[in-house]
Design a protein around this nucleic acid. Structure first.
Lengths: 186, 186
DNA sequence: GTCTATAATAGGATAGAC
DNA sequence: GTCTATCCTATTATAGAC
């Protein structure tokens, strides 16, 4: 076989699901091999840096998707509430309606997070910036806008954690509904 | 040696720190042995059920501490805002001012969580109930009180996650300051 | 109650054939 | 690009002496 058994996109999806659900240590190469249908040696051919590189690639691609489906809509020109709604619809899809954990949360756990921490921090900061800019565009003073943005991230992360514990996405769905106003209204 | 090298309380504290920081899979028996000064065989003498039993005991004791230092103050008779402030002061201590992760979050990650999930759900539900009762005592209608309680849990969990990622407890401390009003005010 | 020693398994990672 | 086979280490867990 010269052709890949599984293409990069599908491979990325499998890795994303695993790292999201089980974190870094909790995701074993044997799991990845089983889910992708590749042997461990083949995985090392695709990711010479091993598990850490797999996690890094997943983080980078997830950040790219977040940028395209959530942050970009938030920054588009137009009416503030419309932008908020579009971005949050993207966010809802990004987290599978609250049924998927946040990669930034699960990969920030433990000491192994060291090599990935900078990447995670950058992604979270990008979210903070985008939300802040939106709240400013809504006419809120700078300090208030920053607080609203931080509140939004806090609530998103918290809702995802609670949804995981309760095994119900209800609290996350409600949040998505409420956030556009909470971010932009006086 | 017939006397324990380390007493139950100290042992519990060590386990708590490890499981909090690294989750279930991320906490290895070798870490526990190093931190407690006990050999692995001695750990198995204290916890015949192995790592799962250690995690269960930690969860139970942490729940007990939460009950005593946070939930009980919330339920005490007296002025609502005072009760809220006392409970939240307990909560701040419980999470070391935002520098320690939530055990219920870190142990709810991964498939290993199966055996511990019921315990975690019970603890979170107890928090929801206590916050709800407080909000009701503040005169809020039942449905509103429930929403406020869920919001509180969401914000606490989210702030802890964000604090971990940003390596700064700032967002958690601000939350503790704001929560008494957010829970009780019309 | 703790220890040393050891078993049994699973983990990440590599070599080299095809 | 994928595979089989293998290495080495770490991991959980147990046996039995003190």
């Amino acid at each position: 076989m010269r052709r890949p058994k599984i293409d990069d996109d599908a491979l990325f999806e499998k890795l994303l699901v695993l790292f999201r659900r089980n974190g870094f240590v909790g995701t074993r190469l044997s799991d990845i091999a089983r889910e992708t249908g590749l042997q461990k040696a083949s995985l090392y051919h695709r990711f010479p840096g091993g598990k850490v590189e797999m996690a890094r690639v997943v983080l980078e691609r997830a950040f790219g998707e977040l940028e395209a489906t959530v942050l970009a809509p938030l920054r588009e020109p137009g009416e503030v509430l419309t932008r908020a709604r579009r971005g949050l619809r993207g966010l809802e899809a990004f987290y599978h309606g609250g049924q998927a954990a946040c990669l930034f949360e699960t990969l920030s756990l433990g000491e192994d997070a060291g090599e990935l921490r900078a990447l995670i921090q950058r992604a979270v900061q990008a979210c903070l910036d985008a939300f802040t800019a939106l709240a400013k565009d809504a006419g809120l003073p700078s300090a208030t806008a920053k607080r609203r943005a931080a509140d939004a991230i806090v609530q998103i992360q918290g809702a995802l954690v609670l949804a995981r514990i309760q095994e119900s996405p209800q609290v996350f769905r409600r949040l998505i509904r409420d956030l556009p106003d909470r971010l932009t209204k006086a």
